[in-house]
Nucleic acid binder design. Structure first.
Lengths: 200, 200, 200, 200
DNA sequence: TATGAATGAGGGTTCATTCAT
DNA sequence: CATGAATGAACCCTCATTCAT
């Protein structure tokens, strides 16, 4: 990679980092492109060299951050000896929830802007960005003898939506109850959702 | 109610209706207050006599529309002979999903802007707006001998979030599958979520 | 006319005057709307209340200024005893050329931006703006027994284009000769153009 | 001319052709240097090696295109047997008008940007560009025994301006009449303008 | 109450020009 | 000679909000 190439990537990364910081601090609508570039120490025109507009960088950031979180949880799982699928899944869920509880800005950012469509298309569009793919990771965990690949996909969808939306409300607003209070219910519900797909 | 009083309410209603129409047509951020008042045939300053800003009218509208939908489904239920709790719940869910499938603009509007907190507080703030309260309606259905009031609330929360977020993705974007394909899974999952709270 | 109405017209006039001043001083493309409003002491948004954009005010100004000049020449004609059509026409031409020689900025402004289409449509659009219409003024001068109304219109078109384009080059750039040198040729040519339409 | 030299000329020509195409398609002010170079497949910086700015290439193009048209008409004249000056002139005028009617973009481009000064100076600056000069061509046609060289120049000026400005309005906008309707008037007027200079 | 003209900060975006490679 | 990433001044325009009428 040439010096010029490196410089380009550095500029892009700087914009990503600065934009994320401002998005979670001030909110997206209150963050202007002027804010981003001036904080990043980059010229305004340069922004438009890499991103179409504010929502372009937001979409890319949302997927980036969500993926990072998932893969981080998977890496943590690999450090353990857990082999049972449900236990593995619970580990990941607990890991992610704990991370979001510690980083409510991130939760706010991801939850408000991540849709399944964005998420999915992002993985398909640029598989080179991460040598490990979150979907593959999940499907590899699922015991294929009891849950079909097709069902696994639908299950993943339901779990993601269910956990995402309830976590948003409980963690950020403690509405209608706090995440700590909700936790046992969440665990039970996740088990209930999974068990449908066993022994079908 | 005097003539002047009536005139005031008419103005307010006109603003509500016009704003809703524009919100679902052009989207909220693309709708300006100028758009609303000019389409409503009302002076710009008058808007500020009734609403604080665009987000004030949006919040009120979201709750209004969501409540109308819930109560409409309940009224439909009353026309039936269904007495079993789970069947009643399924009827309401199917009714609401069918309505949202027919009116995707409404789904988009509600899903993007309705949070549990807004919803809940709205009911508490102005119980007079609807002589029937959605929460009371729901709790009345729940068989109190098998599910406690406290659990009922948590269950309602989970169902609302689960159905809301999966319906959004499947109806509007058919991602990762269409609502028609998802329907049996949805039914099973709802049953699974409910059954946890039986015979505890 | 109420106070508010008067205030509106004052603002509009102020914008007209300031824009014209800047257009002829700095040129149109170098004049920004910011320049106009800041010099006029009016808020930027107010500009857009009265004009669509820079080119809207330019078009209106061009017609305004050209009309004023024509009508001014006609008023001057009325102060004389000249009765012969050709002499009257020559008087008007000489008057206008003299005015443009004294005010080369005006010549530059009008010549670069006035097209027959703009001119004509402007008169038809808002005939109320001037109780006297330049076209009617011209046609009234033409001796209708020797030149038909239809021919008069074509003649006026040719004279306007011929004088306009040659005056532009000779007055502003003395190319290929100065207006003073060109004057006798211009007179002869105008007579030649007119005489075609006599005794047809 | 070495290979490198040829490559340079090719780049320049490519820029000329691309710029012209964009100028007549999108208009000059809407055409950016980015547009030109990206369409030409040449680097942005390279543009500045050959031209000062957008207006530099425009001026050169306008003269180039106008000259081509004039010389083309002269070449067509040489294919005929016409010997009489007025007939020759009419042939050229008709030829040019026909060409502009077929190519209104060219008319628009030339008329809006060609001034006598630009035209004249261009011929004097770079006579090498065309081995035949339009001015010389015209003066050679004029019968020098009846019209002096000095008068010929003034006549050419008047004809050019007269025809140019009336053609613009009639061809492009049919205002106040179409070119077809105007044609006989144009012919008569041209004759009238020429005859002044006979037998002086 | 109701009006709507006036405001003006600040947003997004463009694009001619430069200069290190 | 050729490149094209980077620049950043400059611009247009929107629109929520106010306030005299």
């Amino acid at each position: 990679m040439g010096k010029l190439e490196t410089n380009k990537q550095q500029k892009k990364d700087k914009l990503y980092n600065t934009a994320f910081e401002l998005f979670i601090t001030k909110g997206i609508s209150k963050t202007t492109i002027s804010d981003i570039v001036s904080k990043a120490g980059i010229a305004k025109g340069t922004f438009y060299l890499y991103f179409k507009d504010k929502y372009d960088i937001r979409n890319k950031l949302v997927v980036k951050k969500a993926s990072e979180l998932f893969l981080e949880s998977h890496n943590a799982l690999l450090q353990t000896d857990i082999t049972d699928f449900e236990e593995q899944l619970m580990f990941i869920i607990d890991y992610i929830i704990a991370a979001l509880q510690k980083n409510t800005s991130l939760l706010n950012f991801i939850a408000k802007n991540l849709s399944w469509g964005v998420f999915r298309s992002a993985f398909n569009q640029s598989p080179k960005d991460s040598d490990e793919n979150f979907f593959d990771m999940f499907y590899a965990l699922v015991p294929s003898d009891v849950i079909s690949r097709h069902d696994a996909e639908i299950l993943l969808f339901q779990l993601t939506e269910f956990i995402g939306s309830t976590a948003y409300s409980t963690i950020l607003y403690s509405e209608p109850l706090s995440m700590d209070e909700f936790m046992p219910h969440l665990h039970n519900s996740v088990h209930a959702l999974i068990h449908q797909y066993y022994n079908r």
